[in-house]
C-alpha cells in the first residue's frame, strides 16, 4: 500500500507515460504533414482527415472485429481525402490553405454524419506491448504499455529521415518542394509529386486518427479530437521539417499535455486552465524564439508559401 504512494515521482511517470500515450496521433499527423510540406504544399485539412480516420477505423474495427483492418481503412480514407486535397490544389489558382480549411470542415462533418451508428458500440482496441514487465511498480508498468503504432511511428520517423537524404524519391520530393523550376528542369512532374505526397500525408494522418479511436482514449465520439490535427501542422514548422524533430516535438507536446492532470492528481488544482494551455504556450514561445525575418527558416521548403516572412 505504501509503495503506491509515489508522490512527485508520479508526476514524472505520468508525464513520460502521457508523452508516450498522447504523442502518437501528433507523430503520425506531423510526419504526414512533413512529407506534404516537403513537396511544397501545405494541408491544413489534416484535422478533418484525422477525425475521418478515427471514425472509419473505429467503424471498420467494430464491423469486422479486426482493429488492424480498422487502421488500414483509416489510412485509406485519409488517403482519399488527401488525394482530393492534392487534386484540387493542383488546379491553377486554387489556394492550398483555404482548401485545407474546407477539407477540415468537410472531413469532420462527414465523419460526424457517418459516425453516428458507431458512437455506442464497443470496437476491439489495438494491443499494447508491456515494456514495463521488469518493474514491480504498477505505475511504471502502466506508463510503459506501449502501443505498436507508437513504435511504427518512431520507425517511420527514422525511415523518412533516411529516405529524404538517401533515396531518389526523397530527392524528388525535396527538389519539387524547394524549387519547382529545378524540378521541371530535371523532368519531374511537380503536380504529380505533390498530389502523391499529399495523398501519402493523408494516409498517415488517417492512421493517427485511428490511434485515437482504437487505442487512446479508445472510443469514437464527436469530441474525440480537440484539434490534434491542427496542432500537428504547427509542430511541423516547429520541427523544422525534419522527421526526427517531429518525433521529439510530438513527445514534448504530449508530455506537456499530461502535466496539467498530473499536477492536479497530487493536489495542485489551482490554475488548471493555465497548466492545460502549457503545450500551446511552449509551442508559441519556441516559434517566437527561433523565427526571424532576417533568414528563411532552416530546412523550410522554398516553395512553401506559408513560411514566407
Amino acid at each position: 500500500m505504501d509503495n503506491n504512494d509515489i508522490g512527485m515521482w508520479g508526476i514524472l511517470i505520468a508525464v513520460i507515460g502521457g508523452a508516450i500515450r498522447v504523442s502518437t496521433p501528433f507523430l503520425f499527423v506531423s510526419l504526414g504533414e512533413c512529407l506534404t510540406e516537403k513537396s511544397g504544399r501545405i494541408n491544413l485539412g489534416l484535422e478533418g482527415i484525422l477525425v475521418m480516420g478515427a471514425m472509419s477505423g473505429y467503424g471498420i474495427a467494430y464491423l469486422t472485429g479486426s482493429p488492424w483492418l480498422g487502421v488500414l481503412v483509416a489510412g485509406l480514407s485519409g488517403c482519399v481525402l488527401g488525394s482530393l486535397h492534392g487534386f484540387i490544389c493542383g488546379l491553377p489558382r486554387v489556394n492550398d490553405i483555404a482548401t485545407g480549411i474546407g477539407l477540415m470542415l468537410f472531413g469532420t462533418g462527414l465523419a460526424f454524419f457517418l459516425g453516428k451508428p458507431f458512437v455506442q458500440p464497443k470496437a476491439p482496441s489495438l494491443p499494447a506491448i508491456p515494456f514495463g514487465f521488469w518493474s514491480s511498480s504498477p505505475q511504471i508498468k502502466a506508463a510503459l504499455q506501449v502501443n505498436v503504432l507508437f513504435l511504427l511511428g518512431i520507425a517511420l520517423a527514422f525511415a523518412m529521415h533516411w529516405a529524404f537524404r538517401n533515396t531518389r524519391w526523397g530527392l524528388i520530393v525535396r527538389t519539387v518542394g524547394d524549387s519547382a523550376d529545378a524540378a521541371l528542369a530535371m523532368g519531374f512532374s511537380v503536380r504529380t509529386v505533390r498530389t502523391l505526397a499529399t495523398a501519402a500525408g493523408g494516409f498517415l494522418a488517417g492512421i493517427g486518427g485511428s490511434f485515437l479511436s482504437l487505442y487512446y482514449p479508445g472510443s469514437w465520439n464527436e469530441s474525440l479530437s480537440s484539434g490534434q490535427g491542427l496542432m500537428a501542422v504547427a509542430l511541423v514548422i516547429f520541427a523544422r521539417w525534419r522527421p526526427l524533430y517531429c518525433f521529439g516535438a510530438s513527445l514534448l507536446f504530449g508530455g506537456a499535455g499530461a502535466l496539467g492532470p498530473a499536477l492536479q492528481s497530487v493536489g495542485i488544482t489551482s490554475g488548471y486552465y493555465l497548466f492545460n494551455a502549457a503545450p500551446y504556450v511552449l509551442t508559441l514561445g519556441i516559434m517566437i524564439a527561433t523565427s526571424s525575418t532576417k533568414h528563411s527558416l532552416a530546412g523550410a521548403p522554398g516553395e512553401l508559401g506559408v513560411i514566407r516572412a
Binding site: G48, L84, I88, L91, P92, R93, V94, N95, A98, T99, I101, G102, L103, L105, F106, G107, T108, G109, L110, F112, F113, K116, E222
Partner: peptide, 24 residues
C-alpha cells in the same frame, strides 16, 4: 438527419467554391 448534415453541406460548398477559383 443528424446535426452534422449541415456541416457536410457547408464543407462541400466551401470546397466547391474554392475549386471554382480555377474557373475564373
Amino acid at each position: 438527419l443528424p446535426d452534422a448534415t449541415m456541416l457536410v453541406l457547408q464543407g462541400m460548398l466551401f470546397m466547391i467554391i474554392l475549386t471554382a477559383e480555377t474557373m475564373y
